[in-house]
């Protein structure tokens, strides 16, 4: 418990001093504001470029504005999150920063758990905050096809769980390869591959990426299978990360 508390505080200090909070905040919140505004301005821009009739074909409503934010969350934002977090675990292994804490009795499992929970909670807070802002903008700028705020919050929770999985996957791959860039690239590849696999109906509900599809459709039907399987993957990957960490850190 001592190690967990010490490392939680250390992660907070690190994220503050290395501007990780700032980067995550911008990477997540920015598009919540930017997307609806761009969508609002798009017809105007098009109108001045092409003739007016075409612009009126683009129909943007509240639902599609939020969906556009979800799209950005699993594209640009994912990139920014990976860029920001990729060095977090591998740096500690490769530059032997753990020797002092470990030789003074730090518990490696607590270090890994503190790291994962810190980033998961931070990103979840930003994502929920992002969805609230995005919803506000969407409702203010557009009028048709309204969706309930409750459903937007559920989408926020689903995306948060997906990010929780991404963080653990990144940590797991970092603990194997000890190179942050490589781990981040692999996460990105798996993300893209699973975006394709999710189209196969039979396995879709066991694929983490399905969380994004569910968030995008604003349904609450059949979401539990996916949530539970992702949480199961998270637990397994965390345990494997801890195991790798113990075996690889000083060898």
């Amino acid at each position: 418990m001592n190690t967990f508390k010490a490392y939680l505080k250390k992660e907070m200090l690190e994220s503050w001093r290395q501007y990780k909070y700032l980067l995550l905040f911008i990477g997540i919140i920015l598009f919540a504001i930017l997307d609806p505004i761009l969508l609002k301005l798009l017809p105007e821009i098009l109108k001045s470029k092409i003739n007016g009739d075409l612009a009126s074909l683009i129909q943007i409503d509240i639902k599609s504005a939020v969906q556009n934010y979800i799209k950005d969350l699993n594209q640009v934002t994912l990139l920014i999150v990976l860029l920001t977090l990729m060095g977090s675990l591998s740096d500690e292994i490769s530059s032997q920063k753990l020797i002092f804490p470990y030789s003074k009795g730090a518990n490696l499992s607590s270090i890994v758990i503190a790291k994962i929970l810190h980033y998961a909670v931070t990103i979840s807070i930003f994502i929920i905050f992002g969805f609230i802002i995005n919803y506000y903008y969407a409702v203010t700028l557009f009028s048709e096809n309204i969706i309930a705020f409750k459903n937007v919050l559920i989408s926020a929770a689903l995306i948060s769980i997906y990010y929780f999985f991404v963080i653990i996957l990144l940590m797991f791959l970092s603990s194997i390869f000890k190179k942050g860039v490589l781990a981040a690239l692999l996460v990105l590849m798996l993300h893209i591959i699973s975006a394709l696999l999710v189209n196969i109906d039979k396995i879709a509900k066991f694929i983490p990426y399905n969380l994004i599809s569910l968030a995008n459709s604003f349904t609450t039907e059949n979401i539990l299978t996916t949530i539970f399987s992702v949480l199961l993957y998270c637990i397994i990957l965390s345990l494997l990360t801890i195991k790798n960490y113990k075996n690889n850190t000083f060898a």
Binding site: N2, T3, A6, K10, L13, Q18, K97, P101, K104, G105
Partner: peptide, 19 residues
């Protein structure tokens, strides 16, 4: 090697917390 964004006394305090 240390967490170099900490100050010397912050680092010592961090290790004390672990203990």
């Amino acid at each position: 090697t240390f967490y170099t964004y900490m100050t010397g006394s912050e680092y010592l305090l961090f290790i004390s917390k672990i203990r």
